[in-house]
Design a protein around this nucleic acid. Structure first.
Lengths: 149, 149
DNA sequence: CGTTATCCTACCTCCGGAGTAGGTTTTATA
DNA sequence: TATAAAACCTACTCCGGAGGTAGGATAACG
């Protein structure tokens, strides 16, 4: 398995918020209820989303969460990264600030890492795919209860 | 992290065997030594490769492992799958025999899973990338000690 | 003021990754 | 033919992270 339920549940939260976007804040308990997921656990996940500034929150009665931006402006790469941390196919590969990938073993001993080519290409294809999909593509029409009539 | 060291180490084994292909069996201890990895652990991994018929083994003195096929005929998808099991981006998604992907939650409740589109595309891009790379592409010239002079 | 919500910290359980250990069997060679 | 070098096999350990629970503090409505 490559992504945990953190990504799965977190994306469900985002998809739910996107479906009800414009209807005011949606409480987590409503989402937990609708999706059949444990509220207490979702609270952890939504905090990650909030710290990544993907959702805004309003506390108190009738509070809840809203998307911080239109769903079309949110890529799944951002969402997954907020939930799971840096997207790397494998431990020894990590991205530097400038986007270039480094291999820990290559730095440690100084010799070429034969597997780096592989992980680089895998990482590239995953990130490219995730960047290419926006949250709006996950909103299925039937999920919507109220339309912006 | 998406792939564990099982994939990393296992691929290093394969790359090493590919580099010395044609020179007779290579013992695991030689590989463990060269790569700086624990022999006892590699034994577990190489068994997976053997059961997947990616390597052949010869027991006894001067025994060891050889590639079961030319490196150009071995895709990294096969290798990774042998080492890590089925390639699925997430728990709830699994591939059926005919290759179509099913979502466990979609089957359980009967409603459309909004995230399935995402995982399907991610899975597709990973598998496509891995199938596209053969073992021969990981063999760096400098790794070779003896050429087939 | 009470209810409803977010927010925060601490804790728990379980499983798989990453090995270790110790043995058995097979084969080449001195 | 004994010995060494290898594959092969099973069982075990250790640890961290996934996947939660629990309980409280804080904030906003009515």
């Amino acid at each position: 398995m490559m992504f945990s339920t953190k990504a799965e549940y977190g994306i469900r939260i985002m998809a739910h918020l996107a479906a009800y976007d414009g209807d005011g804040p949606v409480s987590l308990s409503a989402i937990a209820d609708a999706e059949g997921l444990p509220l207490a656990y979702l609270e952890h996940l939504v905090q990650r989303l909030r710290r990544a500034e993907l959702v805004d929150s309003r506390r108190g009665a009738h509070g809840g969460y809203t998307l911080s931006r239109p769903a079309e402006m949110i890529t799944m790469a951002e969402v997954v990264e907020a939930l799971e941390g840096d997207i790397a196919p494998i431990e020894c590969i990590s991205a530097q600030d400038d986007g270039t990938l480094v291999c820990a073993r290559e730095a440690q001993f100084d010799r070429v890492c034969p597997t780096k080519v592989l992980w680089t290409r895998v990482q590239g294809s995953i990130v490219r795919t995730l960047k290419d999909i926006t949250l709006s593509e996950l909103v299925v029409p039937t999920t919507r209860k109220k339309a912006t009539v």
